[in-house]
């Protein structure tokens, strides 16, 4: 626990104490939400979609191979977490915000892999996805293309115009080999209610610790 600094004013101490209570309440709320999430029934079947991926070494561009959704469970006893990347379809250039999230996942995926299977799925062709992945240095992620499948459409991460939506999906594999959808969330949680997956990136949370907060800062594919 962090105690007060010697020269803190009384006003600061009061304000900080009040903030601490709010932070604890937020932590409790997060845990209540997680408990509710865990109680979702695991029952919704999904098709065993066919995707495309490349060799494990990102610096090799081929051969490309087919992989099924069920094949993304490298460990069948662990759930599969999929980042739904907005790239492909009507999204000609990768979404900068999604790219920020994925940059983060690339750094922590070896931790995640202890408990889950993890993949990034985009509608763009596998060659382009890997080419872009090489620029980002995503050597630790499993990059998968859903081009040609109805995965994005069925999961509602692609609309009729081909527009892509960002988000995260969780699947589990039943003992009979079928795949069940457990949970999905998007940046747009409900109409007009956004920032649904902000908690997946440390960037926003870190900026929120500063006097200015996150402000109107936004991610870009690169910074001049």
């Amino acid at each position: 626990m962090k105690g007060p600094l010697a020269n803190e004013s009384e006003a600061y101490r009061r304000a900080r104490a009040e903030l601490l209570e709010a932070e604890i309440a937020l932590r409790d709320q997060c845990e209540r939400v997680a408990a509710l999430r865990r109680m979702l029934p695991v029952e919704t079947d999904v098709d065993d979609y066919v995707f495309e991926e490349g060799p494990r070494e990102l610096d090799k561009d081929g051969p490309f191979t087919k992989v099924r959704l069920s094949g993304l469970f490298a460990d069948v006893n662990k759930p599969l977490v999929v980042y739904q990347y907005m790239y492909g379809g009507a999204q000609k250039r990768p979404c900068p915000m999604c790219t920020l999230w994925i940059d983060g996942f690339n750094g922590v995926v070896h931790h995640l892999r202890q408990r889950v299977n993890f993949a990034v799925i985009a509608q763009v062709a596998i060659g382009e996805l890997r080419e872009w992945g090489r620029q980002r240095g995503w050597h630790d992620l499993r990059l998968v293309s859903s081009a040609g499948s109805n995965f994005k459409r069925d999961l509602q991460y692609q609309d009729a115009e081909g527009s892509q939506h960002p988000g995260i999906s969780v699947f589990v594999r039943s003992p009979d080999g079928s795949v069940k959808h457990f949970y999905s969330n998007s940046a747009t949680m409900k109409e007009q209610i956004n920032r649904g997956i902000d908690l997946l990136s440390p960037v926003w949370n870190t900026l929120d610790l500063t006097p200015e907060g996150r402000g109107d800062w936004n991610a870009k594919l690169n910074y001049e």
Partner: peptide
């Protein structure tokens, strides 16, 4: 046949 790279700037 070698792996190629991409550049995207804004």
């Amino acid at each position: 046949g070698a792996a190629t790279r991409v550049v995207m700037h804004e």
